[in-house]
Design a protein around this nucleic acid. Sequence first.
DNA 1: TGATAAACGAGACGGTACGTCTGGTCTTCAC
DNA 2: GTGAAGACCAGACGTACCGTCTCGTTTATCA
Lengths: 220, 220, 220, 220
Amino acid sequence: MSVPHFEPVRLVSKWTLPSDPMTDQSRPGRKRSEQSRLAILAATLDLVAEAGYGTLTVEGIAARSGVGKQTIYRWWPSKADVLLDALATKADLFVPIPDEGTFRADLAGFLGSTFELGEKAQVADTLRALMAQAQIDPDFGKRFREDFLNRRREALGTIVERARERDELPAEVSSRTVIDVVFGTLWYRLLATREPIGRDLAGELVALLADHGASTAEIR
Amino acid sequence: MSVPHFEPVRLVSKWTLPSDPMTDQSRPGRKRSEQSRLAILAATLDLVAEAGYGTLTVEGIAARSGVGKQTIYRWWPSKADVLLDALATKADLFVPIPDEGTFRADLAGFLGSTFELGEKAQVADTLRALMAQAQIDPDFGKRFREDFLNRRREALGTIVERARERDELPAEVSSRTVIDVVFGTLWYRLLATREPIGRDLAGELVALLADHGASTAEIR
Amino acid sequence: MSVPHFEPVRLVSKWTLPSDPMTDQSRPGRKRSEQSRLAILAATLDLVAEAGYGTLTVEGIAARSGVGKQTIYRWWPSKADVLLDALATKADLFVPIPDEGTFRADLAGFLGSTFELGEKAQVADTLRALMAQAQIDPDFGKRFREDFLNRRREALGTIVERARERDELPAEVSSRTVIDVVFGTLWYRLLATREPIGRDLAGELVALLADHGASTAEIR
Amino acid sequence: MSVPHFEPVRLVSKWTLPSDPMTDQSRPGRKRSEQSRLAILAATLDLVAEAGYGTLTVEGIAARSGVGKQTIYRWWPSKADVLLDALATKADLFVPIPDEGTFRADLAGFLGSTFELGEKAQVADTLRALMAQAQIDPDFGKRFREDFLNRRREALGTIVERARERDELPAEVSSRTVIDVVFGTLWYRLLATREPIGRDLAGELVALLADHGASTAEIR
DNA sequence: TGATAAACGAGACGGTACGTCTGGTCTTCAC
DNA sequence: GTGAAGACCAGACGTACCGTCTCGTTTATCA
């Protein structure tokens, strides 16, 4: 069994890339204020925690952070992007990709670190709001899928592909569907039942997805 | 093998119950206008179909349906409730509960009729918007869960319980989780990947959830 | 010097004439409810006294008097007419026309009974509101002038004409202008300066209008 | 006989004082738009001229002037204040204070320039509406009295005080009452009889108020 | 060291929709 | 047929935010 290997998936804000005026020193003019940027992100998380995403406004963020509205509009295309950026900056969205040698262990590890995130109420509330906004605002939806959802899919995809090579998965179920089942169940609990995502769910999902192949293998 | 039995799950609008002034003949005063009610629901679906939920406004609904704004506010607490009502009234949200004798067949039937709904782009768009709004507006969220989501869960629950009695389900996985996995996968495809929910998904879910028991049965 | 003679000017509500369904017994159907009528008028005066004419609404009158809105609209063309009716019914708007033999005494008597009215704050507030509404609503303005203002003018006109015959008025000033000066000063104090109309004003007006002729007469 | 001296009474809008953001250059932020301000005032006068004060709405002013409603609410407390401002800005409300040496001539001059205003139907209609609104809205009433009515009183007061020093006024009548009689008669004709205020009224008022002292002077 | 350039806090701008309120009408049941 | 009840269409109210647009100021680069 190999030593656990972690390849964290970094969620880098699209709006804080190296080509930004903030870090690009070559141009004339005042540089982007890192202080304002952090104040905006902090104010955003505060406001969502206090009153929910439904009452979050750009004006409110500007007022709370002591910043002009234009400074927000200059750097983010919508308040949902600010929130996604705040989440990526403040919360720890690193997701380790374990490599324990068995699908059972890898999935349990992946789900475990995911649960830790979901158990933080503020993170869970924010994720709900972002998924909601992604439905209502198509442009943000595209960015949310590409910058967040797909990165998580790729992380789990790595695990699933390893299991597929080890023949640990039922042949009738495509890798894509395995991923959909895992994330689908997680998101459904987050969005629909709003019940805490406990450790036992990990066991059940493992039993459903991993034990299948194991049992038929044992028959042979 | 028993004759297929269907127990449709009716989605009755909370706002159109028999105790409404609309149908209650005993009170004095003008009765609720059924004509206005239908015009509002039709206009709502039209507007969502034309420009999406993001641009749906109460003012727009009132203007399109030739109704005063107050008439909308009088009967529905939010525009999302109007839309949910419109969906329940106009679209066919009846969901049969098949009873074919095997989980495999029942689940396939349930998923099949669910797919039919999801394949209608207008219905899918509306469901996305409602689930989104349920995250943003907590009050509507509660109503959406109770009036819509939980009713669907109960329908599938009936099927799952029958399968449980026939010992067709893996013992390690609770009935609740089975339901979560099914709906979770459906909603995840609707909200996150936005890929059409094809018939093959039914087969995969059946394989995952139902074949498990089958394989152990074969061992015997 | 003749015995004082009083010809009171009656302000009869246009909306309570003998041909009304209220008093007309010959027509079929339920008779007009005197109870409702009085409740409406009382509620109107109460509401104006409590919160002023600016916040007076037909809905408020209906609610306070326990009457349907339609009952108000059926009998009065506007809320200002209700208020005028209420004033005429509840307050004592009788104005005696004294005939003491001199303009000085007649005018003093006329102004005295007018002052008594104006000193009642509720009556003064109502008169202000009615004059205001008469400016904004042309239809009511016409009725207000005919039913109220002109009747008062005719009363004073009688006094002035008697004085004119006795040669007690300055020849350069028409009777019409005398009337305008008297009522103008009263209304201006009511509307513009809002200062109480004291007894001394009577003396000043008498000096201005009556002593003129007297002084020149005495020279001769 | 002194050379005529004119001290015009300026009606400066309370809402356009030098400390306004419009003219105050020191504060940060965008300056008040003079273009919008003028468009609002022009639209207001237009709308009152077209359909009367009764149908004047803030929405209408905003639509006609191509301005956001908030811009109106930001600078004026009510639509009546907008109208008063419009009248002060667009119409010529300057009132000269003549100093001809005799009360007779000064009053005639003052009334003459006042008549000119009252003869313009649009100005007369607006004044009626403002006086009406002053009765209905106590807050505006206070402003109307202080910003408009009292300034006119002070102008006439200057004339009256000069006449008083020259002993041209009847001793029994206070200066305040003289002013009340003049403005009262003017306003009464405007509000109650709605008859045009002709030149002959000036003669009659002069005869009433000024000739009195003259006649007694002749006795001496 | 001064010119140029960009970002900043501030806040006014034209808009849009909100949810409420009132007007005046219409419909229903009870008397 | 009146009267209370109350739903109806209509439309203005005053507020809240939107996203944009000046402002005067601050902070940088470059000549």
